[in-house]
Design a protein around this nucleic acid. Sequence first.
RNA 1: GGACGCAUAGCUCAGUUGGUUAGAGUACCACGUUGACAUCGUGGGGGUCACUGGUUCGAGUCCAGUUGCGUCCACCA
Length: 906
Amino acid sequence: MTAAVPTLATQYDPFATEPTWQAFWEERGFYVADPEQDGETFSMVLPPPNVTGRLHMGHAFAFALPDVVTRYKRMNGFNVLWVPGTDHASIGVHTVLEKQLNQEGKTRFDLGREAFLARAWAWKEESQSTITGQLRRLGLSLDWSRERFTMDEGLNKAVIEAFVRLYDAGLIYRAEYLVNWCPASQSAVSDIEVENKEVQSHLWHFRYPLAEEPDTYLVVATTRPETMLGDTAVAVHPEDDRYKPLIGKSIKLPIQDRLIPIVADEYVDPEFGSGCVKITPAHDPNDFEIGKRHNLPFINVMNKDGSINENGGPMQGLDRFDARKEIVKWFEEHELLERIEDYTHSVPYSDRGGVPIEPYLSIQWFCDVSGMASHCLEESHQQNPKFAPDRWTKVYEGWLEKLRPWCVSRQLWWGHQIPAWYVAGNGDPQAYVVARDEDEAYERAREKYGAGVQLERESDVLDTWFSSGLWPFSTLGWPEKTPDLERYYPNSLMSTGFDIIFFWVARMTMMGTQLTSDCAMPFADVYINGLVRDENGAKMSKSKGNGIDPLELMDRYGTDALRFALIKEVVGAGQDVRLAYDRKTGESSTVEASRNFANKIWNASRFVMLNLEGKTPAQLGEPAVEHLEWCDRWILSRFHSTTQQVTEQIERFGMGEAARSLYSFIWDEFCDWYIELVKPRLRSEDETAKITARQVLATVLEGTLRLLHPWMPHITEEIWQTLTQCERQTSISVQRYPAAEERLIDATSEADFAIALDIIRTLRNLRAEANLPPGKPITAILQSQNETERSVLARAREYICDLGRVESLTVTEALAEEPKQVAAGVVGTIQVLVPLAGLVDIEALRAKLEKDLGKIEGEITGIRKRLDNPGFIKKAPADVVAGNHKHLAELEKQAEILRDRLNKLS
RNA sequence: GGACGCAUAGCUCAGUUGGUUAGAGUACCACGUUGACAUCGUGGGGGUCACUGGUUCGAGUCCAGUUGCGUCCACCA
């Protein structure tokens, strides 16, 4: 909107303006970084959303916060880069596609790898464009020219390079291990992809007969009866007198008729249950350890889909849960079922697959992270990286301390295929080479296995977090030494959620310090945002179905309103926020309040522009100091105080506090007071006064828009473009951020001004209490024996008359004559009197005075008590004691005035 | 089982290093549409600061414990 005489509609319409500016910013490349440009570097990478669908409220929140920082830094002259992108989400997409296939009655194996991957890419295209559209809709100042995808060509190259380098450093190996197996996706998953759920189930107590004395048995308990098929021992505590004599003897395992030993192990808690534990080394992590300690056989009784395999004897072919029923039935029928106990315990579920995971013995690829982790731990003790809020450091370090080898292989198709080749026809699982491509693989293989070797590529793909771990540098061109990498790496800040400190932050710090040339941390600071809770304070989740769609709220209230609402609720750096929401109507009072705020800004700007006679702030110029009125100096002082606060707050990641400072400055001070105070001058005949008023309005509004821009980028751009009439030649987002000018901040004057405003409030209050119509002019008498107060009143005379609708104002040291019937109030030691003509409700006036007096007397009692306390006088700081004395004197004066008034009422 | 966060007005939340009898938004009540804005203005009512104890001249604020809510981690069959 750039008409010659700027005008604005009476209501702000975010839906027309927001997309316009989003397109403008991108087309004009305001956020495209140039590594050759000057300026201190500020770089970030966006945590890449998964291409599994669409963005949720957590994204809107987690991205709006760093956008404030990014825009703030950019306006402060930093050379800013913020890289956008998306994540291929290996198992996530895989699960989505398998569900689709399932509905078609097919499996991925029916389709084949190639066709499956074609589907995956098609899905990715669709989801990615949805997501990037939503990121644009949030108004994030991302550099879209550098958009990346974790499986694009460059990143694939980085992933291969990283894997090969880690392998060459001896940190990648293949081993048989008990992994978390997801029977739904038929793949290994990492520890953190497992979610423990409380489940009401049973504890089945089985009788295991001794081999030598079939009538004697030990009782073992289990929550997973089907695993008994793979039992290879029963363990008891070595000091348990009940069982000591049995150690070394054998059990005849029911159903399987296998002889298994009774072993002694410290792990067994003699107090729990019978004190005997069945040991299934191939299907339980603890049993796995015991199995290794006692050299027990590892019998895998399950197939990859969770059904019982050929080692399961008569149960072969049954699904694990059907087998469970059959086995319990078998024990019951053979009178070997001791009892069934109700039992609530937690069961590990596959995050993505949604089914209980199975500890499963298989050969997998592992990354030895112990060295990287301990290095990161040392760095962390030096606050590298530095977490905000710092309590997350403990969480991060706690994770690094107990890290186990990272299982990086997944038996999936969608993802980065592991760059390893097996020697064809060789049964040895360790006969393989790792290489960057097939040529290099053959080169390496020939060296190791001879000239005629034939190779087959590993079909497993890598854990998604392997590529995510490289994100801060892979997006900048690593392993090439690109100008971007040189300039923007390490990143300045990583802004993300606490839920992926383990998944992601730790992987990035480990991979970054291991792989990049100077072993630097990938980022200096980590800002951890809280989570958006639903209207009841619960975490939003798919399974609970309590999510709130950010798009719906943006459709209803606009992007700026949603952004501002979310950020305004944040306390400190990274407290959770709760979003008010009515599920029936789709309304959110929180976001609505911010929408109203946007409209307020809009209308205030509209008022200002209607009074500038088509001139821009630059054309009007700065106001001349000698022409400034008191209220002009006051609003300028408040503007610079606010600027100072906002700057300090944002530097500490206090985006919420800063938002609230801005809110109250704009609404309460600029709109409610300053605009009202300046109106008479705009209508006056005094040209100098009029011009000064315009200049101040224009200056403060223009500065305020820049100050607010990082929070509400669209509306500030819209108004600023109109205000400055810059014809889209530039953008507010690349203007200088306001700097606080301390010489314009005057705390004393602000305090005096507050007295004047209090007088106006008191007059309004008296008017309302006395039932005088708001429009009716009144007479007012302000009496004070204090000279300073009288001088404040003198300076504020016009403001008081104007906003208090006072047609006759008397400021006096002593009352000359007593008006008969008056409404009375007190500000400081100023007596505020409004004579009332005609009939008045004496009792109502008395009640009000008595109420005021009662409150003041209560306060007086409190202060007296304090001042009478010798301990207080002796120990409290002198200025506090003096302050109390001063306040007491003022209160007593007020009480005296009110008592006097009450006496005169009758 | 361990860790972290939270508890202040009907609701959502502020309350800076302890210092005058606790603030805002929203909801509610009354009044008001004179040229920025009814997505508004003015005024008003509304709180035993979860509970118990402690430190202190003084506690919403610091300490300990209790209860409730939220979140994360771990997990004994």
